[in-house]
Computed example of a mutant assay.
Amino acid sequence: MDKPNSTKLEIIVPAFRMHSQSFKNALDGISEESALRRIDNVTNHVVWMAGNLVKCRYWLADLLRLEVKDPNGKLFHEGRALDENLSYPTLEELKKNYAVISPQVYQKLLQVTDEHLDSPCDFGMRIPFVKENVLNMIGMCIGREDYLLGQIGLMRKLLGLKGMSYDLDESLNY
């Protein structure tokens, strides 16, 4: 396993890598048609969830000062609510976006310094027990990914698919 420059990320890096595996596994077998289904018109669809997962990776990229632009940023900015009037990218496009940004973020996670992790970062949430810095924002991103992967896991069952596997793709190194 790759070792991050900062010991503060020794928990984050494995979580990031596991989420990369889970993203692939969670979407496995979901058709483009099923990915746009909403249950009883109250759930978000899988495309919205996957788009928000891609957005999390771009959010991390921004925190780590990568100069990249999310091709679908406006659709998913700050967890923007699903809007049936908007045209969303395909699941296949989102998988490609994820595969492009994730290795870049992974490399930055390995290289980032403690000084940068400790630098102020305004969340806008004003939680008294959470210091607003880059490290804690990275933690919040990882938490958001957990939440979204759980939603997709539930949607798999609601769409009549088997639960997500935890098989590892050894070639996925980010």
Rank of each mutant, 00 (worst) to 15 (best):
N41W: 01
M49C: 06
A61P: 08
V13R: 12
N97G: 01
E132S: 03
V47P: 09
K3D: 09
L161I: 04
F123C: 09
F23K: 00
D62V: 03
S171C: 00
V105G: 08
K24H: 10
F16R: 02
F123A: 13
I30F: 11
I39W: 07
D122F: 12
N5L: 10
G143W: 10
L53Q: 08
G139D: 06
P103Q: 09
A81T: 02
K96M: 10
V112I: 15
E10G: 00
R144G: 04
K108R: 15
L75M: 07
Y106I: 08
E10N: 14
L75C: 06
Y58L: 02
Q111F: 05
I101A: 03
H77S: 05
V54L: 07
C141Q: 14
Y166C: 01
L148F: 15
S6L: 12
H45P: 00
T113L: 05
K24Q: 10
G51F: 08
M140E: 04
W48P: 00
K95S: 07
V54I: 03
H77F: 08
E78V: 01
L60E: 09
E67N: 15
A99G: 08
A15Y: 15
N41Q: 13
L149W: 00
Q104N: 00
Q151V: 02
S119E: 12
M137D: 01
M125F: 11
R156Y: 09
R57I: 02
S6M: 06
V112W: 10
N52V: 03
L110V: 05
N136G: 03
E92F: 05
D122C: 05
L64N: 04
G150L: 13
S165I: 07
R57S: 08
R37F: 13
V112E: 00
D146M: 08
Q104Y: 11
G73H: 09
L63A: 13
N173S: 09
D167A: 15
E93N: 15
P71Q: 09
M125D: 09
P128L: 09
Q107R: 12
L172I: 08
